[in-house]
Design a binder for these strands. Structure first.
Lengths: 328, 328
DNA sequence: ATGAAAGCGCTAACAG
DNA sequence: CTGTTAGCGCTTTCAT
């Protein structure tokens, strides 16, 4: 591997000059510039980013920490982030935290030593104090974070109200909610939205809310139990699309026909919805856009560009009607 | 951020000594060791990996290049890789190539400048010459690579024969194959397996093979066309599970009942199979194990450990019967 | 057992 | 416009 020194020698100039043409930085005579370029060509030289990082204290790299890339919500997010980074000559480090604060902190520690320039993190376990000392820009994606880091998310509460309202509109009389894990802001907000909408329609009953998890099988079990205790439930708002699949399975296993006996709606808008049968109605978030915006915001922060409105943003969500709620 | 110099000063020793205790390398008096450790504690010092990388020409980082993390096959692979890396104190850089040789080469170039220690790559466009000069260990995952890099994959050809054989066994008389993209070794091998099994049963007709792509909608179209031209097809072996979903949709749209009018089987064994209705039969690969083994092999290579049998490995696949082939 | 110093490859004052 | 040089923070001979 040729170094900047080799190039300098080949071009009969100093390393400073080579560095200048490399970074189009400072004045350099057109002729010497050409000589340097030729030398670079001749030696097939490419600058060493590690050396540059050491000096610059920046690695043109960002860390994305998600709970688990296998959850179908995250690949699309990750892809969007990677696309933006790629376009801006950054590189993506992917970390799976399994929602464990320990892993998250360790990753942050390790990556900081690598001069990572920023983080995008989907977390419900980290707190402001974990992040305050951190001298690196950080963005919270998809989840509320009690601190002043920018938050890129979407309107979970409003979306949940919309979903519930919609089930009411199509004629459901007894609507249950299988909520996502406790203490995950997204799940909490959706639960609140459901709660408030139900209450303001005088339809609320505490037993209609069940605690699910982002696991199809577990959600199926939970749903079956709920249906056992409340056989006349005729509509279910699931905490997300993956959970909605679990609900669909529960319906099938208890001999209910969706949507006629039981209308089902999810949340997120992942492609999974179009694959099930019946296809799932859902409250769709603009997932790719969320990842895209998070990455753009982070890069703006890193590069010290002006950030309007603190950088936080909340995306609108959209009701998508499919077979799982279309009653004839 | 404290540096090794600060620690040295605090402990009243030289930086060399600090480095020694940091790396448990060379002799160091127990007492001075304690002093150094205390200083490290006191200053809350953590070594800077970039500086270390510069000297060592290694970053404890590997690059994983996949076509598109949104394709549900890859997240599980990526997760397995990350798990192994994490356990071995490596870090994962994720790259999406969209099957474009240009992007792959560029990523390799960029990452080499970062002293990435190795690559795991899922590619059908790179060739031996792209990789020969490369002075970094590399593993080809899931795809055949014409060169002497280790290949971690599974038995696509045998699996395809098994799938075809199975459709014959359950009584299908006219079996079609919607194959994956041309020049992707996985898709080619599966097509060959189908071809050979059909031929050896005297059932082969060239018109029963259609060119699909890893896109549900396109596969649906292709399948509908094939069914139009061959209305009496009663079994389809799809190039992978995603494509099988497309086939399921085509069946639905043309008024065919799966499995009674048309038996369908996929390949891969992603979780999607259990979500469709009817649930999809498939030839399952041990996806997680594949990623796991690829990562382990790579780390062995990087750390110069003895590699039995060149490192290549081909996993067995397993027929999983579900509703899409279960005729009453 | 410990320290001094060279150097990994690059950038940015500072001089000229 | 160009060169010299001092680091960035760490590891590793080579002395002692």
């Amino acid at each position: 591997m040729a170094t900047i020194r080799d190039v300098a020698k080949e071009a009969e100039v100093s390393v400073a000059t080579v560095s200048r043409v490399l970074n189009s930085n400072g004045y350099v005579n057109e002729d010497t510039r050409k000589k340097v370029l030729a030398a670079i060509q001749a030696l097939n030289y490419t600058p060493n980013s590690v050396a540059r990082s050491l000096y610059k204290k920046s690695s043109k790299t960002i860390g994305l920490i998600v709970p688990d890339i296998k959850n179908p919500f995250f690949p699309e997010l990750a892809r969007a982030v990677e696309d933006v980074l790629n376009k801006n000559n950054y590189t993506l480090i992917l970390c799976n935290s399994d929602e464990k604060a320990g892993k998250e902190k360790e990753y942050i520690e390790v990556l900081k030593q690598k001069y990572v320039d920023g983080f995008i993190i989907v977390t419900s376990t980290l707190t402001a104090s974990d992040v305050d000392g951190l001298n690196v820009p950080i963005i919270s994606l998809d989840r509320i974070f009690e601190s002043n880091v920018p938050i890129i998310a979407s309107k979970n509460y409003e979306g949940a109200r919309k979903a519930t309202r919609y089930l009411i509109d199509i004629g459901c009389k007894k609507i249950a909610h299988i909520r996502g894990p406790l203490h995950i802001s997204t799940a909490d907000d959706r639960c609140f939205g459901y709660y408030d909408e139900m209450e303001s329609n005088g339809m609320l009953e505490e037993t209609l809310i069940a605690n699910g998890s982002y696991d199809i099988k577990k959600t199926t079990e939970v749903t079956k139990e709920l249906l056992l205790n409340n056989p006349d439930v005729d509509g279910i708002f699931a905490g997300n699309d993956v959970m909605a699949v679990g609900v669909l399975k529960a319906a099938e296993q208890t001999g209910r026909v969706v949507p006629d006996d039981l209308a089902v709606i999810g949340f997120d808008g992942i492609y999974l919805c179009e694959v099930t049968s019946p296809q799932l109605s859902t409250i769709a978030q603009p997932i790719y856009e969320m990842g895209y915006r998070a990455a753009e915001t982070l890069i703006n922060l890193i590069e010290g560009r002006f950030e309007k409105s603190q950088g936080s943003y909340s995306f609108d969500v959209q009701l998508i009607e499919r077979q799982s709620t279309k009653r004839k």
